[in-house]
C-alpha cells in the first residue's frame, strides 16, 4: 500500500489514533515489534534474575524490580501501542499523562497513608486491653 493510499484509508489529518503507527513499510513495522519483543524479554529475564540473585545488595531488589517494570511498560507503550512523543500523538500522550497522575496518587497515596497509620497504631494487644 502506498503512503498516500494508506493515509487516504485512515483519514490522516496529522493525528494518529492510539495504536496506529507512523511507518507504513511492512518490514519496518515487523522489525518494530521484534525489537519490542526482544527488549521486553530481556527486561523480564533481568527481573527474574534480580529477584533470585544473591549478587546484589538485598534491600535494593524491590527498587530494581520497580524500575525494571516501569522500563518494560515503557517498551510496551512505544513498540506495541505506538504511543510516542511525536506531534501527531499529543492527545494520546496527554491522556496517558493524566491516567498516570491518577495511578500515582491512588497507589502512592494509599501506601503512604496506610504505612503511617500502621506505624502510629497502638499494638493490637494493648488496644484489646483498653477495650476491656
Amino acid at each position: 500500500m502506498s503512503e498516500h493510499a494508506y493515509h487516504e484509508a485512515h483519514g490522516h489529518h496529522g493525528d494518529l489514533a492510539p495504536g496506529e503507527e507512523e511507518s507504513v513499510n511492512l518490514g519496518s513495522r515487523v522489525l518494530g515489534y521484534v525489537i519490542g519483543l526482544g527488549l521486553a524479554l530481556l527486561l523480564t529475564a533481568t527481573s527474574f534474575f534480580i529477584a533470585n540473585t544473591d549478587l546484589v545488595w538485598q534491600p535494593s531488589i524491590p527498587v530494581a524490580l520497580i524500575v525494571l517494570a516501569i522500563a518494560q511498560m515503557g517498551v510496551h507503550l512505544v513498540f506495541f501501542l505506538h504511543i510516542t512523543t511525536g506531534p501527531d500523538n499529543t492527545n494520546n500522550v496527554l491522556a496517558l499523562a493524566f491516567g498516570l497522575l491518577i495511578v500515582f496518587l491512588v497507589v502512592g497515596g494509599s501506601f503512604w497513608i496506610m504505612s503511617h497509620l500502621n506505624h502510629n497504631m497502638m499494638p493490637m494487644d494493648q488496644l484489646m486491653q483498653m477495650q476491656r
Binding site: 483519514g11 489529518h13 489514533a17 492510539p18 495504536g19 494520546n92 491522556a95 491516567g99 495511578v103 497507589v107
Partner: peptide, 23 residues
C-alpha cells in the same frame, strides 16, 4: 478527526480508566 481516530482515542480513554481501576 476521522472516525478511526475518534474511536481509537475513545477506547484509549477507556483503557486508561481500566488501568486506574487496576491501580
Amino acid at each position: 478527526a476521522s472516525k478511526r481516530i475518534v474511536t481509537g482515542f475513545g477506547f484509549w480513554i477507556f483503557l486508561l480508566s481500566d488501568i486506574v481501576m487496576f491501580s
